[in-house]
């Protein structure tokens, strides 16, 4: 199984440890993982700001880097969703379609493709789970409170395999944290208010960590936590699943 690792730009630049954890985890689970070296960004920052026409360069670069793999895996629901929904190519439509069909967010790749039943990991902390909207409502990583359907959660299933981990679900289990890409800048006050309110719920649960399958949500939440000198830390699910504490 030829697996390509897609490390979104801001993870590459600011959260290399998430990329490292993802790579090590996939290798431990027996995947042959490559990291195409000329990758950069999925194009979402432009597209969500209304400049989808400007993401052509990113699209082409993405296709060049990722066209020759069985699967593409990324530790970011949001970027994966963007590729799935919007990756286009006028010159290479078939390759774009192949990529759209074979790109996976890490959790769903573990549960659906690798069908992982056991992970050797331990993380003896109380972890508050944050459902990222794009992962949940876009990729259906878990059921959502809006619809009438059987309850499930791929990330929770994985976290329940981790020794010592105490999972904590906030009361509003799938409320947006207010990151929202361009929104976190253009609607700064509201974005921070939304993030602050999410943190409050996790505080009530006295969690040690807030974790998510999306680094973007965590970056926003972390920014607010640190500004307020809050002791709660943020951690990506890949780091927990790769942890041997």
């Amino acid at each position: 199984m030829k697996v390509a690792l897609f490390i979104p730009c801001y993870i590459d630049q600011f959260y290399p440890q998430v990329g490292i954890a993802t790579l090590q985890l996939l290798k431990r689970l027996g995947c042959r993982v490559s990291f195409p070296l000329q990758q950069s960004c999925c194009g979402q920052p432009m597209a969500n700001s209304g400049f989808a026409t400007r993401s052509k360069g990113c699209d082409n670069n993405f296709i060049d880097n990722f066209k020759h793999f069985d699967y593409i895996v990324a530790p970011s629901g949001s970027c994966v969703l963007h590729i799935k929904e919007h990756l286009k190519s006028e010159t290479h439509p078939e390759e774009a379609a192949h990529i759209r069909g074979t790109i996976y967010e890490l959790c769903e790749f573990l549960t659906d493709i690798l069908q992982v039943e056991y992970i050797k990991a331990s993380f003896p902390y109380k972890v508050g789970w944050h459902n990222s909207c794009h992962g949940q409502r876009g990729l259906y990583l878990s059921s959502m409170s809006e619809t009438v359907s059987p309850e499930f959660s791929k990330p929770e299933r994985l976290l329940n395999m981790v020794r010592g981990l105490h999972l904590s679900i906030p009361r509003r289990k799938d409320e947006c944290c207010g990151f929202g890409g361009i929104f976190c800048i253009s609607e700064e006050a509201l974005s921070v208010k939304m993030g602050t309110d999410r943190i409050k719920e996790h505080e009530l649960n006295e969690v040690d960590y807030i974790s998510s399958a999306d680094v973007s949500c965590l970056m926003h939440i972390e920014g607010i936590l640190k500004r307020n000198k809050n002791n709660i830390k943020t951690i990506h699910i890949a780091e927990i699943l790769n942890s041997k504490l």
Binding site: Y15, G19, E188, G223, R227
Partner: peptide
């Protein structure tokens, strides 16, 4: 605007790449 009420992420010395 990011910094108004949020800290910037720490900038690591090396990227994942």
């Amino acid at each position: 605007p990011w910094f108004h009420s949020r800290e910037m992420p720490e900038a690591p010395k090396q990227s994942f790449r």
